[in-house]
Structure formats: C-alpha cells, structure tokens
C-alpha cells in the first residue's frame, strides 16, 4: 500500500486506514487470516480430544466438557470457525453468483446460518459444561 506509484497523490490517512480502492475488504482479509492462524493449534487440539473421546460414555463426555479449559477452548474455536467459514462462504458466493438480488439474499441467509450455528454450539457447550457432575 505504501509502495503506491502515485503516492504523492495519496493521503497518509488512506494507508493508515488500510482501505483499498473498494474502501473495504482489508478487514475481511485480515479476519480470515487471524481466524485461520488461531485455528491451527485449536483444530489440532480438537482432533486430539476427539481421539480421546471415541466411544466415551455420557458421563465421561460431560465431565470432559465440564473442565473449564475444554469448554473455553471449544467456545473460542467455535467463534473462530464460524467467522472464518462465514467470510469464506461469502467469497465463494460472491464469485459464483452474479445476480445482485439473489446474491444479497444469499449473503444475508449465510449470516443467519453461521451466527445461528455459533449460538447453537455455544449454548450446547455451556449447557453440557454446567450439567457435568450433577
């Protein structure tokens, strides 16, 4: 951005804000990368945990979720994945659907879908964690 050829015409504010010619997008890109980076250790932890929980009884599973560290990491992972997937799916829709009104409907529908899944997951994690050991 700072290496812009016509930098004499570009106010420093433009660079500072990180906005491109479309005035948006940098934030989308950055969030996609931040969530991607955060997910690497979290996904490895999730797979490791799932291996340990194969065929676990209800009591064993709820006890696992009742551990604060597990419930907290689950909620962080869920939040990250839902944002990452929403941003990702948005790009896919934008690439393949050209009809403007249909695109808008899809984008709104997707937002509801991913935020809905996030709420369902987080509520479930909390409920399981809170009933553990009762």
């Amino acid at each position: 951005m700072s290496g812009h050829k016509n930098s004499e015409f570009v106010a420093p504010l433009k660079t500072a804000k990180g906005h491109g010619s479309a005035h948006e997008g940098a934030e989308h890109w950055l969030q996609q990368k931040i969530t991607a980076l955060a997910q690497i250790p979290l996904v490895l932890w999730l797979i490791y945990s799932i291996i340990g929980l194969q065929g676990a009884s209800y009591a064993e599973f709820t006890a696992w979720m009742g551990q604060p560290v597990n419930a907290i990491l689950m909620i962080i992972l869920i939040s990250s994945v839902m944002l990452h997937a929403k941003l990702g799916a948005q790009v896919v829709v934008e690439d393949y659907i050209s009809c403007g009104c249909l695109k808008m409907a899809k984008l709104i529908g997707m937002k509801i879908f991913f935020y809905g899944m996030a709420v369902a997951c987080i509520f479930s994690v909390l409920k399981i964690a809170f009933i553990a050991g009762i």
Binding site: Y58, F61, T62, V81, M82, A85, G88, A89, V92, M117, A120, C121, F123, S124, V125, K127, I128
Partner: peptide, 23 residues
C-alpha cells in the same frame, strides 16, 4: 482448497448437530 473449505462447513454442521444432541 475451496472444495475442502465448503466441505468443512458440512463438517461444522455435523459438529453442531453432535453438540446440540449431547446437550
């Protein structure tokens, strides 16, 4: 990368179903 990304959304849906069932 794109195909697995969209496929993983299905995986996330299954994880959600699992958690809701467990709850």
């Amino acid at each position: 990368h794109r195909i697995t990304g969209v496929g993983l959304i299905t995986g996330t849906l299954l994880v959600t179903a699992f958690l809701v069932a467990a709850a």
